[in-house]
């Protein structure tokens, strides 16, 4: 059992996302994270799904996804050399004074940006892989994380290899 990152190319049509997520819940597969957006191919969207399972389960998920008429291509990026990124927006307590300075210091170590400053809190924007965001969030907890918003992982292969509808 380990996390797999699936890249799923779908028709950009109403209802497609619910077909995909419905399939996961119906067949008892859990989604760890999910991100959707339009992509370079006209009329298509790309969904990046992270899910946990053994090899047989992941194979079954991919085969079932492939059976959906609106799914054009499914690839498991897990065994490939790839880059993964997630974006998080974190609203954290930061009273003017020492705690605010510490939060700003942590932000700079993690290459996070401060994108809003309030009288008693700041909003950080941080991009990176899941582990990095988890680590920052953990460190910020002592100041009081008021709200956390994450996009879900997106991934792309390194080098010139691509995940496209045609080879």
């Amino acid at each position: 059992m380990k996390p797999h990152t699936l890249s799923v190319l779908v028709e950009n049509k109403p209802g497609v996302l619910s077909r995909v997520t419905g399939l996961f819940s119906r067949r008892g597969f859990n989604i760890e994270s999910l991100a959707v957006g339009v992509c370079e191919e006209p009329g298509m969207s790309r969904i990046t799904i992270v899910c946990i399972g053994d090899d047989a389960q992941i194979e079954q998920v991919m085969k079932q996804l492939n059976k959906l008429i609106d799914v054009i291509k499914v690839s498991d990026l897990t065994e490939n050399d790839r880059v993964e990124r997630e974006l998080a927006l974190i609203k954290v307590n930061a009273e003017p004074g020492s705690s605010r300075a510490e939060v700003m210091q942590l932000a700079s170590i993690f290459r996070a940006q401060i994108i809003d400053v309030g009288s008693r809190s700041v909003v950080l924007s941080v991009a990176g892989d899941t582990k990095k965001i988890d680590a920052l969030e953990k460190l910020l907890r002592q100041y009081g994380v008021k709200e956390l918003v994450r996009t879900g992982t997106i991934a792309i292969l390194r080098g010139s290899k691509t995940v496209r509808s045609t080879k």
Binding site: G15, R19, G22, R26, L68
Partner: peptide, 12 residues
């Protein structure tokens, strides 16, 4: 929505 899991495909 109701028939999504019991059809090969459906259209609105």
């Amino acid at each position: 929505g109701i028939t999504m899991p019991i059809t090969k495909h459906n259209y609105l």
